[in-house]
């Protein structure tokens, strides 16, 4: 059975439509790379689909100290902005891990956040940047830390009728995202590690994807990396902690012991890569 497409031109109209719908009757469409596949597989059967296409959410903005990404901005637009690789290199790495060029022409960062997939390549780096999500709904606007939005596994903490308007990254920081998977394009990461190097404590912010529940910050690893320039031994201990404490399981993509070895390697290489760069990136 097909669906009817609603294409409101203003945010209040979109919120009114989303709020008026009965549960399960309406689905939100950003790029559709998750939603349309769910429809094809019969996982959801919305009668109406609310398109974000005409809302003023198709842009990204650099402001003092950070980046704000409209929820309907395609990933490809971000990646083609030459400032991204300079100012937020880890986000650039992560975006280029998603699917393929032609997929990223439609897939959005907002859709990836709402999808909250445990193997998402974008969530680890966004968590490491302490990203904040701007939400609009029947009660107005609110900002929520991404970490809090992801509190429940696979189900972001959005109320009925609420839409993600934008995602804000409150920093520009040297950073890297590394992943392990069988095939570079169109494959799912077995493990993803995001590392952000900060000029303030904690100097190293580390987050992980490829765990069963949801991507998460590795605070115990961050504590091991207490100093701006950790020694080899300190880095080795941090890698051991990452390998031992990350809540991995075995599944069809990789075994638990494999993931434990890989996470230690990815963490070590990421920190070494950032230490080898002359100065922390800025501007």
């Amino acid at each position: 059975m097909g669906f009817e497409l609603l294409r409101p031109a203003t945010v209040p109209q979109a919120v009114a439509l989303a709020s008026a719908a009965a549960p399960g009757e309406l689905a939100v469409l950003a790029g559709g790379t998750d939603l349309l596949l769910d429809v094809d597989r019969g996982l959801v059967a919305p009668r109406r689909v609310l398109s974000l296409a005409r809302l003023p959410w198709h842009s990204h903005r650099w402001a003092k100290g950070g980046l704000t990404v409209g929820s309907a901005e395609p990933l490809r637009n971000l990646e083609l902005d030459p400032r991204l690789a300079r100012r937020l290199p880890g986000l650039h790495d992560a975006i280029r891990a998603v699917g393929s060029v032609a997929l990223r022409e439609r897939a959005t960062l907002g859709g990836n956040v709402v999808r909250a997939a445990p193997a998402s390549d974008l969530l680890p780096i966004l968590l490491a940047y302490d990203a904040v999500v701007d939400v609009v709904g029947p009660e107005g606007r609110r900002s929520v830390a991404l970490d809090a939005l992801l509190a429940r596994s696979r189900e972001p903490a959005l109320g009925h009728g609420e839409l993600v308007a934008s995602v804000a990254i409150p920093t520009t920081a040297d950073s890297v995202y590394r992943w392990q998977r069988v095939r570079p394009a169109n494959d799912v990461s077995q493990v993803g590690v995001a590392v952000v190097r900060s000029t303030e404590r904690p100097y190293w912010r580390v987050a992980l994807g490829g765990v069963p529940s949801r991507p998460l910050r590795l605070h115990d690893v961050e504590r091991e990396l207490a100093r701006a320039r950790p020694t080899r031994e300190e880095l080795g201990r941090a890698a051991a902690v990452a390998g031992a404490s990350a809540p991995f399981v075995s599944d069809k993509r990789a075994s638990e012991p494999y993931r434990r070895r890989v996470v230690a390697l990815l963490l070590t290489r990421s920190v070494e890569q950032l230490l080898a760069r002359a100065t922390p990136k800025a501007g």
């Binding site: 497409l5 469409l29 559709g32 032609a102 439609r106």
Partner: peptide, 27 residues
């Protein structure tokens, strides 16, 4: 594949490569 994974359906929309299997014509 009809599921975004092979690129066979790639067309240009406004000059940019796009997967036509995951794009609604109305969009």
């Amino acid at each position: 594949c009809r599921s975004g994974g092979c690129g066979a359906c790639t067309v240009l929309v406004e000059g940019r490569p796009t997967l036509s299997c995951l794009t609604l014509s109305s969009e």
